[in-house]
Write a protein that binds this DNA or RNA. Structure first.
Length: 279
DNA sequence: TTCAGCCTGTCG
DNA sequence: CGACAGGCTGAA
């Protein structure tokens, strides 16, 4: 679910936690942690430690404490919600019985609570101890989509013989783009998602690089896309879904030329594009 | 490089 | 009831 703009929005919502000590840790679903070979006791060394940094690469969010780095991947439906005075208000959206049923972790910081929910359980929690573990974790991950330079993007694009959309979705190449933003970026760039990456001209790569930056930044400004479940760190919906031009709009007219938008499958993912103006 | 599998929920 | 959903992994 959450792609780069959504995770970035959540990260900025959680800045209030910086400098706060982790007071307590409750795991409501221990079997969730076992997917990443963790158990509750692995978290004991974090207790009493101060959160001194939040960072993000691609769709991963990292909580840095002196004794380890807690990392979340939100999968399709994960959410991280901050509450004041630690507890959930049962009248709020995040306190709804639906979400409560899917509460995985409750972290109790000074003054704040942080709740991790994941209805579909595709998300993951990791605990990285020491610089080497963090480096090893990050090493297979591509450069963040907002940090990649034109030259780096060009390097990737010209050497890959896979559909350009598959390249955008490959987290080992570029980190942070998912199905929504891949479709939106390619439509705005007017490049057909099935085009083999290595057939793109340099001016198309330039356009792709620029549109990628603009689209992701605009989405962050609007606090992400709430298609279904996504909510930010305060439990609020984003607004970028109102700016979606093609994602999941197959069968409707292209907003640029009026041709009916088509649907196809690329890399196992539903893809919407305009057969007329994406070449 | 494709594809099932992981999970639960929703929609038609 | 089946189809499908924002993602990723590992096996064929």
């Amino acid at each position: 679910m959450p792609e780069l703009p959504e995770v970035e929005t959540i990260k900025s919502d959680l800045q209030a936690l910086l400098g706060k000590k982790l007071r307590n840790f409750y795991c409501l679903k221990p079997e969730y942690l076992s997917k990443t070979r963790l158990s509750e006791k692995d978290f004991f060394p974090l207790l009493g430690q101060t959160l001194f940094q939040l960072s993000r690469q691609g769709k991963y969010l990292f909580f840095h404490l002196a004794t380890g780095v807690l990392c979340f991947h939100l999968g399709l439906t994960g959410s991280l919600i901050l509450t004041f005075n630690s507890s959930l208000d049962s009248n709020s959206r995040e306190g709804s019985s639906f979400l409560l049923k899917h509460l995985i972790l409750h972290l109790e910081f000074e003054d704040f609570g942080l709740h991790f929910f994941d209805p579909r359980r595709f998300g993951r929690v990791y605990l990285l101890k020491g610089k080497k573990e963090l480096d090893d974790f990050l090493s297979p991950l591509g450069k963040d989509a907002l940090a990649i330079s034109l030259e780096e993007l060009a390097e990737l694009v010209i050497q890959k013989r896979i559909p350009i959309k598959a390249l955008l979705l490959d987290q080992r190449a570029i980190a942070g783009i998912g199905n929504i933003y891949a479709d939106e970026i390619l439509f705005r760039t007017q490049i057909n998602p099935k085009r083999q990456a290595n057939t793109l001209s340099f001016s198309e790569i330039q356009r792709l690089h620029q549109v990628m930056q603009e689209t992701l930044k605009e989405a962050i400004k609007l606090r992400g896309s709430s298609v279904k479940d996504y909510v930010d760190g305060m439990g609020r919906s984003g607004l970028f879904q109102t700016k979606h031009l093609v994602y999941q709009k197959y069968g409707k007219p292209c907003p640029r030329c009026g041709t009916i938008l088509k649907k196809t499958i690329i890399g196992g993912r539903t893809t919407t594009f305009c057969p007329e103006c994406q070449k």
